Computed example of a mutant assay.
Amino acid sequence: MTSAPNSSRRSWLSRHAMSLLALACLVAYAAFVEWQWGWGRLLLQWSRVGAGTAVAALSLLTATYFVRAQRIYDYFPAETSGRFLQLFRLTQVHNLLNIMLPFRAGETSFPLLMRSQFAVPLTRATAALLVMRLLDLHALCAAAGVGLVLGTRNTTVAWLAWSAFLVSPLVFFAAKGPIFRHLNGTLPQKLEKLLEEVEAGVPANAAGFVRAWAFTVLNWAVKVIVLAWVLALLGVTPLSATFGGALGGELSSVLPLHAPGGVGTYPAGITAGAVAFGAGRDRAAVALMAEAAINAHLLIVASACVGTALSIVLSWFSAKPR
């Protein structure tokens, strides 16, 4: 016979399992950073940026997590209505798992969490995640493309091309019916199944798609601009290279070989992206970029940690009886 205290303890652990997992990830990463670099040394390097600027950058990055949660809240209105704070905690745990787990294993948590927390079928949640990731990739490239435009001489043509690329998802949605009908039956079986999932994950009406697209563009515009701003303050030049660094870092996080926490791969992506967009390749320039890349990566992880901690606190307050 199970005693009441043991039953209550298991019930508490069940309710707060996600929060405890998130906190464990935070502690593990903090210990790793101290062992690898030392927090004192890394925090000292932020003196060049200034505490006020660092807090502002961290606040803006944390704010993007609310935008992401709002996109999902709008994507599943029937299932999530009136439960934004619970959804915010779910998105933060998913984001932290994406950062901490290798090989993109954290992505699998989203459909599982949506099913367990909001009773969203696995197929629908997976299809929606796929579409949102395609929108993320497009918006990320569009935001980073500003760096390319700034680095060209014929800015009029460049801005027109950039604008056309920016709104291309809206054109795709307008033509999705004929496109899906044309592709149906012409692709290999595996691609046919992928196509069906993409179609199932696209919002049914234009208003819903425009909102999803707008939330995505806002999220990535803020994130890339903040990262470019921080890299510039840390000494990365020219301006186009700061946008390239932001793009390289974020693209590295979607690679199959993404390291736990992005340690090594994310800073390497920033450095490679900055060099590809015009940064210097001499030893001194690369060393400066590597240092800036590590600090930018820590800023990303710090924002994820702050967002997760904030979601835990807000969920606890929302769970209190009124």
Rank of each mutant, 00 (worst) to 15 (best):
L96V: 12
G280R: 07
S311K: 11
V27E: 01
R281W: 13
W12L: 12
S3C: 09
N154F: 09
R9I: 02
L231R: 00
R71A: 12
L58S: 06
A119G: 12
T155Q: 04
S3N: 14
A164I: 11
A285E: 13
A28K: 05
G307I: 08
A24Q: 09
A279L: 13
L255E: 11
M114Q: 13
C305K: 07
S315L: 02
M132L: 14
F110G: 05
A31T: 07
W12S: 09
I270H: 07
I72R: 02
Y65M: 09
L255S: 08
G145V: 15
N98M: 04
G145R: 12
E291V: 03
S252T: 05
M114E: 04
Q86K: 13
P188I: 07
G262N: 03
L26F: 13
E196W: 04
A4E: 05
R211W: 05
L129I: 01
G208A: 06
L134Q: 06
I312N: 14
L20H: 11
F173L: 01
T308I: 00
S168H: 15
A144I: 10
G38P: 11
A206W: 14
P238F: 13
R71G: 00
L112H: 13
L195Y: 10
V224R: 12
A204I: 03
S252W: 04
V33H: 10
A128P: 05
F180Q: 04
F32P: 02
A30P: 10
L247H: 09
G248E: 15
L60C: 00
A119M: 08
L251E: 09
A287D: 10
H297P: 04
L130R: 08
A174Q: 13
T308V: 05
S14N: 04
L85H: 05
E79D: 06
H297Y: 15
F110E: 07
S47M: 01
A142T: 01
T2C: 08
L183I: 14
I270W: 14
Q36A: 14
G278V: 15
